[in-house]
Amino acid sequence: MKKILTTITLAMLAMSVFAQQQQKIIIKLWPNGAPTNSGLTGPEQQLENGRVGNITDPTLTVYPAKKGNGMAIITCPGGAYIRLAMNHEGYDMADWFNAQGITYAVLKYRMPNGHPEVPLDDAQQAIKLMRQHAAEWGVDPNKVGIMGNSAGGHLASSAATHFTSDKDRPNFQILFYPVIEMKSGSGQMLLGKQPSAELMKKFSNDQQVTAQTPPAFIACSADDHSVPPVDNAIKYFSALTANKVPAALHVYPVGGHGWGYNDSFIYKREWTEELEKWLRELYK
């Protein structure tokens, strides 16, 4: 009997894994070639802990919600604009968002290599693709959000402040310990070693906020020395509120940088509950 139960359990687990795999859709952003070029060549690099580098062929991995509420979130993992933390800042959150009825997608975007338009092109294309496939994936085109961690947070805030039309404007933004100002290492990787003052201002996204910038949820840690909140998350929040854009800011006492969906972050329960509540109230 014990062997039979074990066999049944393993079979059920296998079916569960298969079902999860069936739900995942991977599409290329630019099947006919991207409009911009970073100058990077060679194969994609598989790095430690699920990180990926030297990305030249961007993709969108979509997890449609089985019982969707119409919302969709596209996330941009971080990695200082030189690599992407695809697991704890990407794939690992799929089940959590799906359980809320949210279609979730992970953007594997190209590295800029000093060409700031490259990752932004990818983020804007991802938003357009989500809306193009809205009916297929059970998504309301008016409920498409962008999310990002660290440098991915900068990219998400770029999509929220540099949109060109309603087609690539996100309806809301979620930022975790985001890079906002361009004096950091991420800024150098994005803009090059000696960017002009004009380019620095253009991609310092607190200076690009307008009344049309979408609502924001922002979370970070007070002891983040890699991307200090005062110069980044708090500065962006201040710009949003100055322009009367609805925004929520959560600064946790400790946690440092890069916690993502890791259980080791002691305020994981707090940020997940607050974000769930914020998303629920967004379209109430």
Rank of each mutant, 00 (worst) to 15 (best):
D57L: 06
A126S: 09
N113I: 00
M182F: 13
S157C: 07
D92V: 05
A65E: 04
Y283I: 00
T59M: 09
K28E: 15
Q20W: 03
A65S: 05
E270G: 00
L190N: 03
H154P: 01
S165E: 12
N49R: 13
K2S: 13
G185M: 07
D140L: 01
A135T: 10
N149V: 04
A247M: 10
P195L: 05
L240S: 02
R83G: 01
A247T: 00
F237I: 08
K277I: 05
S184I: 01
Y109S: 05
V52F: 09
N37L: 12
I27G: 12
T59P: 06
E198M: 07
P215I: 05
Y283K: 06
I73C: 05
S226V: 10
L199S: 14
A160L: 12
F97I: 11
N232T: 04
D168I: 03
G53L: 05
M130Q: 03
S186T: 02
Q132S: 03
G187A: 03
G185S: 00
T6V: 09
Q173A: 08
V62Q: 11
T213E: 08
W96M: 14
K66F: 02
M86N: 08
Q173G: 00
L60C: 12
G101Y: 04
D121Y: 00
Y267E: 00
L190M: 13
I82W: 04
A123F: 11
Y236R: 08
A34P: 03
Q207E: 10
L155A: 01
D122K: 04
A14F: 03
A216Q: 10
Q125H: 12
T210Q: 06
G50V: 03
T103M: 11
A11G: 12
N205K: 04
Q124A: 08
K28I: 04
I82H: 10
I146Y: 04
V106E: 08
M15P: 02
N37E: 14
D206K: 02
P215K: 14
K66I: 07
K244S: 15
K167L: 10
F97L: 15
N243A: 10
G145D: 01
T61L: 11
Q125F: 15
G78P: 15
S150Y: 00
N243R: 06
P112T: 01
L10N: 11
G114H: 02
G70Q: 10
F265M: 13
V17W: 15
A135M: 08
K24N: 05
S196D: 14
Q22D: 15
Y267R: 00
A156L: 05
A248S: 15
D224Q: 07
I26Y: 01
I127P: 07
G185Y: 03
W271F: 13
S196I: 11
G114K: 01
C76M: 15
L120D: 13
L5E: 13
G78S: 10
R269P: 00
P64I: 00
M130V: 02
N37A: 09
H257M: 12
Q194D: 14
K28P: 04
G68C: 07
K202D: 12
R280G: 15
A151W: 06
F203R: 04
L199W: 11
L249V: 09
L240I: 07
Y109I: 01
P253E: 15
S221R: 10
G70K: 09
P214E: 06
T36S: 15
Q21F: 13
